[in-house]
Amino acid sequence: MQTRSTAHPHPLALSASLSHPGEGGSPLVSLRGVKKTFANGTTALAGLDLGIRAGEFVSLLGPSGCGKSTALRILAGLMDASAGTVEWPGSGADADHRGEIGFVFQEPTLMPWANVADNVWLPLRLRGVSRKAAQGSIDECLDLVGLSGFHKSYPRELSGGMKMRVSIARALSLRPKLLLMDEPFAALDEITRFRLNDDLLHLQRDFGCTVVFVTHSVYESVYLSSRIVVMAARPGRVVAEIDVDAPRERDEEFRTTPLYGDLCRQASRALHGAMAPDEHL
C-alpha cells in the first residue's frame, strides 16, 4: 500500500480545502463502526469505518456481496445501520442531510412518462420549486452532462448512456455536496463507459462535489478515484485503502502510464488476497 501524498488539483476546483486532498480536505461525512445485518441473518457489513473528505473521489471496490452498495445506502440515509453511526461533522446531530446528497442507481431509473427536463426537475419539484423557477437549474445540469437541447426528449428515445447522463443530471439538480453512485456504468458497453468516465472526471472538476463511487471494476476505480477503498465479502469489510497519487486531470494517456498499471496491480492483489479460496474459481 502506498503512503498518502499530495495530489494536484485542477486550478478550477472550487473549494479551498481541495488543495491537499491527500492530507484531507475538511471531513465531510464518516461511517463509524457501521454494521448491517439483514432480517434473514446475512451480515452485509461487519463494522465499517470510512471517512470521506470534501472534494475526494472515493471508490468502493469489491466483489458482489461485500456490502459496498449497503454502505452507500446507509450513507444516503436510504437504509438504517444495525449498529454504528453516520457522522456529519460541522452540523447538528439531528440535521437533515438529504438535500445535500445526489444518488445515482445502476439503472437510470427515469420516469418513462416524463421528458428529460421534467425528469431532472423531479428533486426540485419535490422541494416545491416551480418548473419556471427550476428552468435555470435544469438547463445547467443538462449542460453539465452534455445533454443541452434534449429537454423535450422522452427516455425511450435515448440510448443507455444518455439515460444515465439524465440520471446524473437529476442527481446534480439539488447541487449536492455529496454525489453517491451505485455502479452507475456497470450495464453500459465499454466504449460508452470510457466516455462517461472521462465526462464524470470533468464534471467533478467543474462542479466541485465529493463523489463516492461503487464499482466492481479495478480499472474504473483506478482511472476515476483519488482514493480506492477495497472491500471483501462475507462479512463485508475494508481490506485495503489505496491513494491514487496522480493528477486529477486525466485522459486516455493515463491508462498507459506505469503508475496506472501499478495501481491496478495493487488493487487487484488486495482484492484477490481477501477472497476466500472458493471464490477464485
Binding site: 438529504r98 431509473t109 428533486p123 419535490l126
Partner: peptide, 16 residues
C-alpha cells in the same frame, strides 16, 4: 412503480 424511483422519493421528497 419502480422501487428505485420510490427510494428517490424517500431521498428527495421526505420533507417533514
Amino acid at each position: 412503480v419502480d422501487r428505485n424511483l420510490l427510494e428517490l422519493f424517500d431521498l428527495y421528497g421526505a420533507t417533514r
